[in-house]
């Protein structure tokens, strides 16, 4: 349970990092907080030739609100996300989600960039990126580019990041007025990865849902948006019958795995229960009246 041999470079600029990552003669891997990478190194599931430590790049640690967008630097730690007044004001669903990420000692080092690039299908922040229509800014490679969250997560632990590229920041467009949110997660014990997690955003105008977003984690190869269920909600009120139909639609569209922690059927059951709770919370939070 000790890491294999590697070289280590601590960089202080994005350009230095991308130059090393672009050099294809050696397999380089980025280390941010290391809270997913270190276990993989200790288990020898990863064996890079060079670790590129980006924790010294100060430009990646900002969290700013400008022109109706909140931009979060890739090296922003979970603990900083969870205590940020900007996040609490605009995206309380993230503040809630962060409380489910592992434990304080992990949140003290883990980063949003690391979590998104690790792309664990049961992790909270990839689900948040999908729910909140995040845009991910990447440097290096063929030049800076922006990737929509829906195109970023390709399968378990696989993203659209290409060789030589580095995730530098995540941008979240602010939500409209009359928005409500919900977040629910079940794990075997506090801080464990989700057996199932659901989050939702509902915008309610004149008693009707004008915008609906539902994202799930832990029940498929990647976190997923539930487009079919979202379409069922738009232009509707929320009542018991409709809620049941939406939950059943989601249950039929996911592909949860059976593993040592839980069966596929149990995960599917959880998603139904959690979706109902999350949608009720989001609807009430947006000023809707549940019939």
């Amino acid at each position: 349970m000790k890491p294999p041999i590697f070289d280590y470079v601590k960089v202080s600029t994005v350009e230095e990092a991308t130059a090393i990552l672009a050099d294809s003669s050696k397999e380089a891997v980025v280390i941010a907080g290391g809270q997913s990478l270190l276990p993989m190194l200790n288990f020898r599931l990863a064996a890079p030739e060079i670790l590129v430590d980006i924790s010294g790049i100060e430009a990646l640690k900002s969290l700013i609100e400008r022109d109706n967008v909140v931009t979060i630097g890739a090296m922003t730690r979970h603990v900083d996300l969870g205590s940020s007044p900007i996040i609490a004001r605009h995206f309380p669903v993230i503040t809630k989600a962060v409380t489910h990420i592992a434990h304080l000692a992990i949140r003290n080092r883990g980063t949003i960039g690391g979590s998104l690039c690790h792309a664990d299908p049961a992790a909270e922040l990839p689900m948040m990126a999908l729910l909140l229509n995040a845009e991910l800014m990447v440097a290096g490679g063929k030049g800076p580019r922006t990737i929509a969250a829906k195109d970023f997560f390709q399968s378990a632990l696989e993203t659209d990041i290409q060789e030589g590229e580095l995730l530098v920041s995540v941008s979240l467009p602010l939500l409209p007025p009359n928005t409500g949110w919900g977040f629910e997660e079940v794990s075997r014990k506090s801080g464990d990865f989700a057996l199932a997690a659901v989050s939702a955003i509902l915008v309610v105008n004149d008693g009707e849902i004008s915008e609906a977003r539902i994202a799930v984690a832990g029940v498929d190869e990647t976190p997923r948006r539930m487009n079919g269920a979202e379409a069922m909600l738009r232009g509707k009120m929320l009542d018991d019958d409709h809620l049941t139909a939406v939950c059943e639609t989601i249950q039929s569209e996911i592909n949860p795995e059976t593993d040592l922690q839980a069966s596929s059927n149990y995960r599917r059951h959880l998603i139904g229960v959690l979706t109902a709770r999350v949608l009720k919370d989001a609807f009430a939070g947006a000023g809707g009246i549940f019939e």
Partner: peptide
């Protein structure tokens, strides 16, 4: 607080 086994 940090995990010293998850830090080089």
């Amino acid at each position: 607080s940090i995990r010293s086994c998850l830090c080089l």
